[in-house]
Design a protein around this nucleic acid. Structure first.
Lengths: 197, 197
DNA sequence: GCCTTCATGTAAGAAGTTACATGATTGT
DNA sequence: ACAATCATGTAACTTCTTACATGAAGGC
């Protein structure tokens, strides 16, 4: 009877600020999209379902396009169910964590070692770029929201916590990539003496 | 025309050792399941597709049950396509990384702080258990496969690399959980003086 | 005799992506 | 004029999960 995971994602956004479906879909690209994403074609039907369950309501607002523009906000029940869900342990660790990159590493012994090393290096650079982005967000948070990020009953605290998770995650992946590149280089392609070239 | 991600997961397993669909499905629970999983109802049709594409073949083996038991192995083409795929950079970082736990944290400011802290502590313990399991696998690898794990052209090297990724990942999550628990405790529920109870 | 493991498949449904379809407002 | 952004929806398709269905071999 309660909402789906996507429903709770939408409620989590609406609890911060009432929004249109379009804005929700945009927010689910970045930065919340770093841990939960959805396309607008999923958002609109889900909003209708949440409304049918009495967890959100909307008012029609003037705006562009051929249809009514609707701004959604959570109901009292929506807020309390969201809070209850957030404090309930998830069924179990999925242990799933589908990761196509790790799957490639799993078969990397069949690939050309130089191609494999280059692939890992490229991925590491992508993670470095991501880390830089997270660090900027953290700095911004610490500058403008210094008071709220210490209070776990504010949305700013929750934002900060997820950004910290991102930073920690990227740092770990980068360190592992560097380790792996060193290993591939050391064990396979005994580096031809480049000093003569 | 090439295989799907699941197809490459199956090929990656079959490149190590020919197996039945049942055994593949079991392997996709643990330990490969830590980064790619599938149920048997996905495996059997996928094997048929791979065979139609000429990437695997099977021989019928005697065994239990009402139907033929089939042992699959990759073809020459299957192996080479797997190697090529493994060395090719994935389209891009998905940035998606769907994580229901982080989504809960994102709305944790609406939850009871004590419930939230307890939830995080429980999750941390689950990750600690996982870390212990990974460390055992690593120790086992270092004991019995010491020679191969230094050579990036062996499957043992690839196994070792993925286990190291797991260890690094779990260590990061545990550290972040501990940080978060401290923050929730410090900011919200100024701990009642327990020494008098 | 009964339960577990091994073994292979189909069917129904949920979840998610990509493509189709429409149209006003705003900035260049 | 043209393009981008804002805005809302539907349809078709892929992927994945859960449930249904069958049955032999081996251990208790």
């Amino acid at each position: 009877m309660a909402a789906t995971t996507l429903g709770f994602a939408l409620l989590g956004l609406l609890a911060r600020r009432p929004m249109t479906g379009y804005q929700l879909a945009a927010a689910l690209k970045t930065p919340i999209g770093y841990f939960w994403s959805a396309s607008h074609s999923q958002v609109y039907p889900e909003l209708a379902r949440l409304e049918a369950q009495g967890l959100v309501r909307h008012e029609v607002i003037g705006g562009p396009g051929p249809r009514d523009n609707k701004r959604y906000h959570p109901t009292q029940r929506g807020r309390s169910e969201l809070g209850a869900w957030a404090g309930t342990p998830a069924p179990a660790m999925p242990a799933d964590n589908r990761d196509e990159f790790l799957l490639k590493i799993y078969s990397s012994w069949l690939a050309d070692p130089r191609a494999a090393a280059a692939m890992v290096a490229r991925r590491r650079d992508e993670h470095r770029a991501m880390l830089d982005r997270y660090r900027e967000i953290r700095a911004e948070n610490e500058r403008t929201r210094a008071a709220e990020i210490d209070d776990p009953t504010t949305p700013e605290f929750a934002n900060y916590a997820t950004v910290m998770a991102g930073i920690s995650y990227e740092e770990h992946v980068i360190a592992w990539c560097d380790w792996l590149i060193g290993r591939i280089g050391a064990g396979a392609a005994p580096p031809a003496d480049d000093s003569r070239r």
